[in-house]
Amino acid sequence: MEGSRNQRPEQVKNMADNVAMIAQGTFVRGNLHGEGDLNVAGRIEGSIAVDGEVELEASARVQGDVSGSRLVVRGAVLGNLTATDSITLEAGARVVGDLSAPTIGIEVGGLVRGRVETGEASAAPAKTVAAARSAAPVKSAPARTQTKARPQQEPARQEAARPAPEPPRPAPEPVRAAPPPRRAPAPQPKVQVRNDPAPAPEAPAGPPAPVLPALKKKTTGQLRKRGAAR
């Protein structure tokens, strides 16, 4: 009994020396940082900051910023990706957030919605524009899916995921990227409209008149909350 019990951890230690692995059935809510590499196949709600390589498998779901020396993404990320070396989005990757690294690769089948910035942290805009154009077509397509996802996720205390809404706003810097931000904020009220009719049937006594003020109040409240969060 003792022998077999002692062997198991040592085997794992040899296999994964200074590597953290978040398995598929594992859910981490909180911040993860430190030294070494990280392999994620599970879910993380919170920021990831390690100095080694971060690999997000196809089954990985990360809501929060991710930073490391080298990022390889095959799963879904809602948050900004920052790497000191490189970022590679492989087929199946879905990223809503900004990418920033000296070298960035997006393979066929990798989706990005956000700003892409290669080179130094404050790189020349020429490179940025070129990168942004490649990302721009993707923006318009998944816009609706993201806005649908956002209202569900925000109430779930995912503050770490909030940086994601930023991408549409900084995007206007390139002139051509201006239209998508208008689309992006627009669906938000629509989603609220969907939410409002739901409570309405529960209290049919309320005349239709309050619906409009209620909408305005809620929208301003949400704006304030967002402002306060920043």
Binding site: N18, A20, T26, F27, R29, G30, L32, G36
Partner: peptide, 19 residues
């Protein structure tokens, strides 16, 4: 699939694991 938190890693939060 087992979850391993390597010796340089710090997690502040909640871990829920099936394995």
């Amino acid at each position: 699939a087992s979850t391993v938190i390597g010796h340089g890693i710090i997690i502040e939060g909640e871990i829920t694991a099936d394995d």
